[in-house]
Every structure is written in structure tokens, then in C-alpha cells.
Amino acid sequence: MEIKYIWTKELSTENLKKLFLSVDWESGNYPQKAQKAMFNSHKVFTAWDGDALIGLMSSMTDTVLTVYFQYLVVHPDYQGYGIGKKLVDTMLEIYSDIPRKVLISVNEKVGFYEHRGFTHHVDKSPMFVSSL
């Protein structure tokens, strides 16, 4: 398996749909919106196996104080090979001068992010207004 990593926002709706639905994310049912979300992101770092999009991480930032990592997704067939680690570590390096790095994790993935240097704050709660 030879994984190629690319910085790109040019992602097809079909690739995004397949990737998001592979992890049962509702976003996969809205591939045009997902495509626009990637295009509007500050940066998108992607992982490819040939022509197949198998992972991505995106960011939004004010470029001074805070960066928010909105999406990190790796196709289940490729999990456990260090792809998520590579995506996260690269993003953390790119934004090393930004003091506040934020993401929201599902509970079962918190350990993965803790190993990448993120901490869980018991005095802070993610808040949502969402139709997804």
C-alpha cells in the first residue's frame, strides 16, 4: 500500500460521498455541501490510494489565535496504518504558531487525539445548533 498525501481543496463529490459514508457520517448524504465545505476551508490535507480518496483533514482559522479542525476522516479499511496520525501531525506542524487548536471528537476517538497532544477539558463543553 503506497499512500500519497496532497494539499488540495479540489475534491469530487463522489470521492467525498464515498469517504464520508464509509464512516457513516451524515455529511456523505450532502456531497455538494461537503465539496463546498472543503473549498471554503483554510487548508485540506488529503490521503490517497491511487485515485481513491481514503482520508482527509480540514481546518478553519483566524490565522492568529485559533485554528479549528473541522474534519478528520479515514476510510475504515485504512485505519490503523498511521494515516490519521500523519494527517493530524502535519496539520499541527503547519499551525504550530497558532496557540489554540480546537476540535470536537466522538467519545470513542478521544484517546487517539490525546496521543496527538490534545487534552479533554471537563470544564468546557462542545455546543451545537445542527440540522445534521
Rank of each mutant, 00 (worst) to 15 (best):
residue 3 I to S: 00
residue 5 Y to K: 11
residue 5 Y to G: 08
residue 5 Y to D: 07
residue 7 W to S: 11
residue 8 T to P: 00
residue 9 K to H: 12
residue 10 E to K: 15
residue 10 E to V: 12
residue 12 S to H: 13
residue 14 E to N: 12
residue 14 E to S: 15
residue 15 N to H: 09
residue 16 L to R: 05
residue 16 L to N: 03
residue 16 L to S: 00
residue 17 K to Y: 08
residue 17 K to D: 07
residue 18 K to M: 13
residue 19 L to Q: 01
residue 21 L to C: 08
residue 22 S to M: 13
residue 22 S to F: 06
residue 23 V to K: 09
residue 25 W to P: 00
residue 26 E to D: 13
residue 27 S to T: 14
residue 30 Y to N: 12
residue 30 Y to W: 10
residue 31 P to M: 13
residue 32 Q to E: 12
residue 34 A to N: 02
residue 37 A to H: 06
residue 38 M to A: 10
residue 40 N to Q: 14
residue 42 H to Q: 13
residue 42 H to E: 15
residue 44 V to D: 03
residue 45 F to S: 04
residue 45 F to I: 04
residue 45 F to Y: 12
residue 46 T to M: 10
residue 46 T to R: 05
residue 47 A to T: 06
residue 47 A to G: 04
residue 51 D to K: 14
residue 51 D to N: 14
residue 54 I to G: 02
residue 55 G to M: 05
residue 55 G to A: 05
residue 56 L to C: 06
residue 57 M to C: 10
residue 57 M to K: 01
residue 57 M to S: 01
residue 58 S to R: 00
residue 59 S to Q: 02
residue 59 S to K: 04
residue 60 M to E: 02
residue 64 V to I: 15
residue 67 V to P: 01
residue 68 Y to L: 05
residue 68 Y to W: 00
residue 69 F to W: 02
residue 70 Q to N: 11
residue 70 Q to R: 09
residue 73 V to S: 02
residue 73 V to D: 03
residue 75 H to W: 02
residue 76 P to H: 07
residue 77 D to N: 11
residue 78 Y to K: 00
residue 78 Y to M: 01
residue 79 Q to T: 09
residue 81 Y to F: 11
residue 82 G to W: 08
residue 83 I to F: 03
residue 84 G to K: 04
residue 84 G to P: 03
residue 86 K to N: 05
residue 86 K to E: 11
residue 86 K to P: 03
residue 87 L to C: 01
residue 89 D to F: 06
residue 90 T to I: 01
residue 91 M to T: 06
residue 93 E to A: 10
residue 95 Y to G: 06
residue 97 D to W: 06
residue 97 D to I: 05
residue 98 I to W: 00
residue 99 P to G: 02
residue 101 K to W: 05
residue 101 K to N: 08
residue 102 V to N: 06
residue 103 L to M: 12
residue 104 I to K: 07
residue 105 S to E: 01
residue 109 K to D: 08
residue 109 K to F: 01
residue 110 V to T: 15
residue 110 V to M: 13
residue 112 F to P: 00
residue 112 F to H: 02
residue 116 R to A: 13
residue 117 G to L: 14
residue 118 F to Y: 09
residue 120 H to R: 15
residue 120 H to T: 14
residue 123 D to M: 07
residue 123 D to Q: 09
residue 123 D to G: 09
residue 124 K to V: 14
residue 125 S to N: 15
residue 125 S to C: 11
residue 125 S to H: 14
residue 126 P to Q: 09
residue 126 P to Y: 07
residue 127 M to D: 08
residue 127 M to L: 11
residue 127 M to N: 08
residue 129 V to A: 11
residue 130 S to P: 05
residue 131 S to F: 10
residue 131 S to G: 07
